[in-house]
């Protein structure tokens, strides 16, 4: 148990610390790298909770794909972020005030938090992981049966996002030579080579 507790505090503190670094580091590339560190430690926390499937998904999807694209974009953008931050301090007081108010409100809500007496009965997925199955099985059962409709809706949303990205960015450029593999393969010798008997000194 000590080991688990220690790991928890290790993951949690690194996660929070790198979260702070994400917003405070001067270099955007460093910020993204800290973000990755934060994801990683969050995955570690998932593992500690026994949600290994989620942990791996977090690493694969967020660290392996999303953050790579973040990094990709941030590296290629030639934006002087220090310049962008020039006016930052100017807005700090009002930002801090809003943050403070939100914090107080959150504390008020959480302080008086109550759970409905019937809440336990309403839960759907309490016991999904118990009963000897791994949590990928349990998740799969829930997603593909109980929440199948939502799962399909989510797929449709992704389709819309894809169409949207293409609509807004794809440009048909004219005058670009494109490789057409089908045509290349279909090209035969007779179509492109002509054997000519040329008399010397005459040319074609």
């Amino acid at each position: 148990m000590i080991l688990q507790t220690l790991s928890f505090y290790l993951f949690a503190s690194i996660c929070v610390a790198s979260g702070v670094m994400v917003i405070s580091s001067r270099n955007p590339v460093h910020a993204v790298l800290y973000l990755i560190l934060a994801f990683f430690n969050a995955a570690g926390l998932f593992v500690l909770m026994g949600a290994e499937f989620l942990a791996m998904l977090l690493v694969i999807v967020y660290v392996g794909a999303v953050a790579v694209l973040f990094l990709f974009v941030v590296m290629m953008l030639d934006i002087n972020f220090t310049e962008l931050r020039q006016g930052f301090l100017q807005y700090l007081p009002i930002g801090a005030l809003v943050g403070f108010i939100l914090l107080v409100e959150l504390l008020l809500v959480l302080g008086s938090w109550a759970v409905s007496p019937d809440a336990g009965a309403a839960l759907v997925a309490t016991n999904a992981t118990v009963g000897g199955t791994t949590n990928s099985h349990a998740l799969g059962r829930l997603i593909y049966t109980h929440y199948a409709f939502l799962f399909q809706c989510a797929g449709l949303i992704l389709l819309i996002a894809m169409i949207g990205a293409i609509v807004l960015t794809l440009r048909e450029r004219v005058g670009v030579k494109r490789q057409n593999v089908g045509r290349q393969v279909a090209r035969r010798r007779e179509d492109s080579v002509v054997v000519v008997q040329v008399d010397s000194g005459k040319g074609i």
Binding site: F53, M56, L57, V63, G64, V68, M75, T134
Partner: peptide, 23 residues
């Protein structure tokens, strides 16, 4: 239990070494 995913995750992280080196 999620060995394949672990492998997949680790192999997908390999790109960071290269990106960071390049940058």
């Amino acid at each position: 239990n999620v060995g394949v995913l672990y492998l997949f995750a680790i192999s997908s992280l390999g790109v960071y070494g290269i990106i960071i080196a390049g940058w």
